[in-house]
Simulated assay, not measured.
Amino acid sequence: MNQPRLILAGGTGFLGHHLARYFQQLGYEVVTLTRQVRRFGQTAWDGRTLGAWAAKLEGAAAVINLAGRSVDCRYNAANKYAITRSRTESTRVLGQAIARCQNPPAVWLNSSSATIYAHTTGQQPANSEATGQLGRDFSEMVAQQWEAEFWLAPTPHTRRLALRTAIVLGADGGALPVMARLARFGLCTPQGSGQQWISWLHLTDFCRAVEFLLAQPTLEGTFNLCAPEPLLNYEFNGLLAAHYLPRWRLPQPRWLLEIGAFLLRTETELILKSRKVVPQRLLEAGFRFHFPSCPAALTDLLPQLA
């Protein structure tokens, strides 16, 4: 029996490493497309143009595109251009490669972001795929352009799913180790007002959800990849404080966060935007989360941190 092949574009980061390991354990041959081929020893591509890498897609079981420049930077004109281009160009060229296949991949999962939804405050309803309100700020428009490029791809024989992924919590990468390190030093207080919503997902459930979507041939379209229980920023920081019990708890007003973001060359949007998102379509399709609540997720993950 032939080993199914999974193409992982932009798969050398935190999520890509875990997806590669997860699907290798399921018996897949995982081919990672990366610009950093000397470092990672995988298949080279530039994320913009067709090349020898495109032959790897012929007969593949699935393509997963995670490519995109980090948003952890200042939103100046050059960075905005690079953030947008890295997402739209990689998606466009994958669509071109799939369209040229004689035996195209059965399914294509393309990253998007839960940040596509508008800032949601107070008791406003959570954003589902069916009723969510899309925003008009920079990061929200990037996600919309990203998805628009995905749906424009001429790939009628390949099932497509756009993954609006929330913050993925893991012990060895992503945002959680940084937040935990700050919490140990007392920065586990509400950031700004603390009333902004956080949508999140345990790394285990991220990998399981991708597997679930690949295995359901009738599912296509847009899916929110997040846990079913978003929580407020002050509640999340309270969980960190209860775990680490720092001697001091330092306030984090918005003005101080703005100064810190400027010095660290990043943006406060990453922590101040309110993301209230629910995975309605995943739940309706029968997916069951191992970690539906944030207290359970952090109980599992925080002891794993050094």
Rank of each mutant, 00 (worst) to 15 (best):
P4C: 11
P4Q: 11
L6P: 01
A9M: 07
G10Y: 02
T12C: 11
L19A: 08
V31D: 01
T32L: 06
T34P: 09
V37W: 05
T43G: 02
W45S: 02
W45H: 06
T49E: 13
A61F: 10
N65Q: 04
A67C: 09
D72E: 11
N76G: 13
A82G: 00
R87G: 07
Q96L: 14
S112F: 04
S113W: 03
Y117Q: 06
T120Q: 10
N127C: 15
S128H: 06
S128E: 04
M141D: 12
Q145K: 13
W146F: 07
F150Q: 05
L152R: 15
T155N: 07
R159H: 07
L163G: 05
L169H: 02
G173L: 04
L176Y: 01
P177A: 07
M179Y: 12
M179A: 13
A180H: 06
F185V: 07
G186V: 04
P190A: 03
I198M: 13
L214M: 12
T218G: 13
N224K: 03
L232C: 08
L250S: 00
R254K: 15
I271S: 14
K273F: 09
R275Y: 09
K276F: 05
K276D: 01
P279T: 09
F291P: 00
L298I: 08
D300K: 09
L302I: 04
